[in-house]
Design a protein around this nucleic acid. Structure first.
Lengths: 181, 181
DNA sequence: GTCTATATCAAGATAGAC
DNA sequence: GTCTATCTTGATATAGAC
């Protein structure tokens, strides 16, 4: 015990995310993060000078990852006008329960500390801006956005307990909202 | 200072709800609740022996109120098969931003403490059970449920910032999902 | 750069006066 | 039943050794 090791920042973020999912962000402590990550508290504090910094780092990493995932999926879907939206639906449906829960817990956490809301508001806002509410297609796309993010939160937070099959039907119906889908 | 007064349990719950909305539930302290309610901490603890008990009481009161509101609205809507669902959409759209935020913050808080999830899971589950996923109408109703609760959370938590007019369009489109609406 | 040890503080909960 | 005062804990953050 007490041996030094090179600290892996991504490993810390993974540990923090897992704990958030397991116990809820309210009970997340830096002590527990350090323990789970297998490092000392001092080492943790050196890499992330405060809990807020840690949470901001998780947000930044996850939003970035999700955007990459969307871009990749959208590219594979092709030139359809609502490719990104279809990619979002696909990504949300395919996500493992654990990943979904981690993302939803993080989102709920951010929502409780207004100073952290910025990045996620921007992500949602940018996407909604693509869909003009004056057009029929835009309205259907916005409705699909609300529905898919609703499914994300309701399922990820464990508020609505449905079977895999039931969720599958819901995602199919969300997809059917998208114009030209 | 120091004069005794009769403690109003509903007043305490109001104070706690307001603080939750203003600062996020993560920063809710019993000290602040007592201060806001204009009573002593001891008096607070006498009425609600723990913070968990306080949160549970808020949940119970709010779920009860909302169910009453739904029942009342559904009755006024009449014998339509999806009257309760329409009532939910109407209630969610009409809710003031403050009330919406209080409800959504509470929901997010419950989601972070698994032991508090029960009542809300039951409320959602009971409603979803009414809509058989084997029927076309049932599927549309379930989709509308996901969408309206998505709107509730996204708007109430401040995750998605849209104008009043933009939300109005979205609620109109959610309503259009309901069979025979 | 990572560790151990400790300072500091906020917050939930308790004890006992009135 | 409500109050004031205090206890106790757990968590953030800091200091300094290695």
């Amino acid at each position: 015990m007490g041996r030094k090791r090179t600290i892996d920042r991504d490993g810390i973020l993974d540990a923090a995310e897992e704990l958030t999912r397991e116990q809820g962000a309210a009970h997340l402590s830096l002590d527990a993060v350090a323990r789970r990550a297998g490092i000392s508290k001092g080492g943790l504090m050196y890499n992330f000078p405060s809990k807020d910094a840690l949470i901001a780092a998780i947000t930044e990493r996850d939003l970035g990852r999700f955007e990459s995932l969307l871009a990749e999926k959208a590219e594979r879907i092709g030139e359809k006008p609502y490719a990104t939206l279809l990619a979002r639906i696909e990504a949300t449906e395919e996500e493992s329960p654990e990943t979904l829960a981690k993302g939803a817990c993080l989102t709920a956490t951010l929502a409780q500390t207004p100073e952290h809301l910025g990045p996620i508001q921007k992500a949602y806002g940018d996407e909604m801006l693509r869909y003009a509410p004056e057009t029929d297609g835009g309205r259907r796309a916005r409705l699909a956005m609300i529905a898919v993010e609703g499914a994300f939160l309701l399922r990820g937070l464990g508020l609505m307990e449905l079977s895999e099959d039931e969720w599958r039907l819901i995602f199919a119906d969300i997809r059917a909202l998208v114009p030209d889908a």
